[in-house]
């Protein structure tokens, strides 16, 4: 198997790793870089627990070969509060019951962050259409919708 050098920024910091061709981004993040905030759920791109941003685009780390991020900027949940201060979205998730067990939360937050870039004041339909790729079994989603509304300054 071929090995590839992957040079990219992870949450703003330059990183370079050598990975075999079949390494997936989720495994590179979790096993090689110790960034375990990105969670493994279904492993088939459906549940969204492994959502990350690559150059701002929302993607599934469980389906993405690590070599695909060479030269790109990856943002994970660990990068949202980069300066130690929670973002409005993170804080709203705590205040509004945007999570319970928390396993889907990194993916929800990454997805919500991308949503609010695309739609700073999202309509309920825009929230639902965008966030429907992030499954949550605990909250029934109501708290997530409330939190996104608060983060967007709409409540």
């Amino acid at each position: 198997m071929t090995t590839h050098r992957v040079a990219f920024t992870l949450n703003g910091a330059a990183r370079a790793i050598d990975v075999p061709a079949d390494r997936l981004l989720i495994d590179a993040l979790r096993d090689e870089l110790g960034a375990t905030g990105t969670k493994l759920g279904c492993g088939i791109g459906v549940c969204g627990a492994c959502s990350v941003l690559v150059d701002g685009e929302l993607l599934s780390a469980c389906l993405l070969p690590a070599i695909f991020v060479d030269g790109h900027a990856v943002t994970t949940v660990e990068g949202l509060a980069a300066d130690g201060e929670l973002t409005a979205t993170q804080d709203a998730f705590i205040r509004d019951g945007g999570f319970q067990c928390g396993i889907c939360t990194p993916g929800q937050l990454v997805a919500a962050t991308a949503l609010l870039v695309e739609h700073p004041r999202p309509s309920p339909d825009e929230i639902r259409t965008w966030m429907m790729g992030n499954l949550c079994r605990c909250t029934g989603y109501y708290g997530i919708e409330r939190a996104i509304g608060r983060a967007a300054g709409m409540t």
Binding site: G45, G48, L58, S60, L63, A111, T129, M132, G133
Partner: peptide, 9 residues
């Protein structure tokens, strides 16, 4: 198609 994440890839 599927979800925004899949459509991005």
């Amino acid at each position: 198609v599927a979800t925004v994440r899949i459509r991005n890839q």
